[in-house]
C-alpha cells in the first residue's frame, strides 16, 4: 500500500522507526502526525513512513516506558495525544544511536570495496 508517487523513496528498515521516533521526540513533545511529518522532512522526503505504522510503534515505546503521552489541545482546537521522551527513553536513544552508528560503519566497510570495483 505504498504511494507509488516517487520511485526514489526508500522503505524503512525494520526497527529503525523506533529510533527515528525517539530522535524526533528529543526535540520536544509532538502529536502523531507531526512525528510522521518530521521524519519525512528530516530525511528530505527520502524515507517513506507508511504513516499508520507509526501507531503500533508509538504504543510499543509507551509500553517499554521510553516515551509517555499527555492529552493536549492542538492549534485547531482538537484533543490529541502529545508524545514526549522519558528519561529512560533519552538513555535508550543514546544506546540506539550508538548501535546504529556501529551498524552503519560496519555495512559501509563491507560495501565500500565493492563499490570501488
Amino acid at each position: 500500500m505504498s504511494t507509488k508517487r516517487d520511485q526514489d523513496r526508500i522503505e524503512l528498515l525494520q526497527g529503525t522507526l523506533d529510533l527515528l521516533i525517539l530522535r524526533t521526540l528529543r526535540l520536544g513533545p509532538a502529536h502523531g502526525h507531526a512525528v510522521a511529518k518530521a521524519i519525512e522532512r528530516g530525511s528530505e522526503d527520502v524515507l517513506q513512513v507508511e504513516q499508520g505504522s507509526l501507531y503500533p510503534a508509538l504504543h510499543r515505546l509507551i509500553k517499554r516506558g521510553w516515551i509517555t503521552f499527555d492529552h493536549g489541545t492542538s492549534e485547531n482546537n482538537r484533543r490529541a495525544k502529545f508524545y514526549s521522551l522519558t528519561a529512560r527513553g533519552r538513555k535508550q536513544l543514546a544506546i540506539e544511536t550508538g548501535r546504529w552508528d556501529k551498524l552503519a560503519r560496519a555495512i559501509a566497510r563491507i560495501l565500500r570495496p565493492a563499490a570501488q570495483e
Binding site: 502529536h31 502526525h33 504513516q51 501507531y55 482538537r78 484533543r79 490529541a80 495525544k81
Partner: peptide, 9 residues
C-alpha cells in the same frame, strides 16, 4: 481514543 487519534492524524 485510539480511533480519535487516527481520525485526527
Amino acid at each position: 481514543s485510539l480511533d480519535d487519534d487516527i481520525r485526527d492524524h
